[in-house]
């Protein structure tokens, strides 16, 4: 039951992108086509779950026992940066097909604030390891849901006649606002 609440809340009610404003850069950057949005979602899900597990272990077995909690930001970002590199190298050797599909998105993930944000939020919310994994997975799905929905909307937006000043990013932002408004309908269900 607890897990269902975490999942619903992370995907719909507190959607990472539309409600918490994490990962806006890829949300605006790689949402021009549905296929690239799906690829990005795959890469983000993979790295987000891995990063949350590793940062959880670091926080509870290194930072807390030695009382060096102030090193959190530095150690987390280093872990995420090296994890992304590691995943890239391993994927290249083990599964070239998957590397082909996700490859271009991987370097972009280091600066995706959703990854670091979810890792820090997991610590703040005081989840245990299993809850942390569920939370990060659900957050990644929420990210993917928003990204794919938005990419679908943007594909149609390209065909619409708009005033010059509002074409491009302003129009995309306004559409994102409407999407966020739709997601507000979920508030209160958990």
């Amino acid at each position: 039951m607890e897990f269902i609440v975490i999942i619903i809340s992370a995907i719909f009610v507190n959607n990472v992108v539309l409600m918490q404003f994490l990962g806006i850069c890829p949300f605006l950057g790689v949402s021009k086509k549905v296929s690239t949005a799906v690829g990005m979602t795959g890469a983000v899900t993979f790295v987000m779950i891995l990063a949350t597990i590793v940062t959880y272990l670091i926080q509870h077995y290194i930072l807390n026992p030695y009382g060096i909690g102030f090193m959190q930001t530095i150690s987390f970002i280093l872990v995420i940066a090296s994890l992304v590199q590691l995943v890239e190298i391993i994927l290249k050797k083990v599964s070239p097909a998957l590397y082909q599909a996700l490859g271009v998105f991987l370097p972009l993930i280091t600066t995706n604030c959703a990854i670091l944000g979810v890792a820090i939020m997991t610590i703040q919310k005081d989840y245990n390891l299993l809850e942390a994994v569920v939370f990060s997975g659900a957050s990644a799905i929420g990210f993917g849901l928003a990204l794919v929905l938005f990419a679908g909307l943007r594909e149609h937006l390209d065909l619409v006649e708009l005033p010059k000043g509002i074409k491009g990013t302003p129009a995309a932002l306004i559409v994102a606002g409407l999407l966020a408004m739709a997601f507000m309908g979920f508030s209160g269900i958990v």
Binding site: L18, M19, F21, I166, T169, P170, A171, A172, L173, I174, A176, G177, L178, A180, M181, F183, M184
Partner: peptide
């Protein structure tokens, strides 16, 4: 949240 996107867009 929606207001942030819409205000920045305009």
């Amino acid at each position: 949240a929606p207001g942030a996107f819409i205000a920045l867009g305009y």
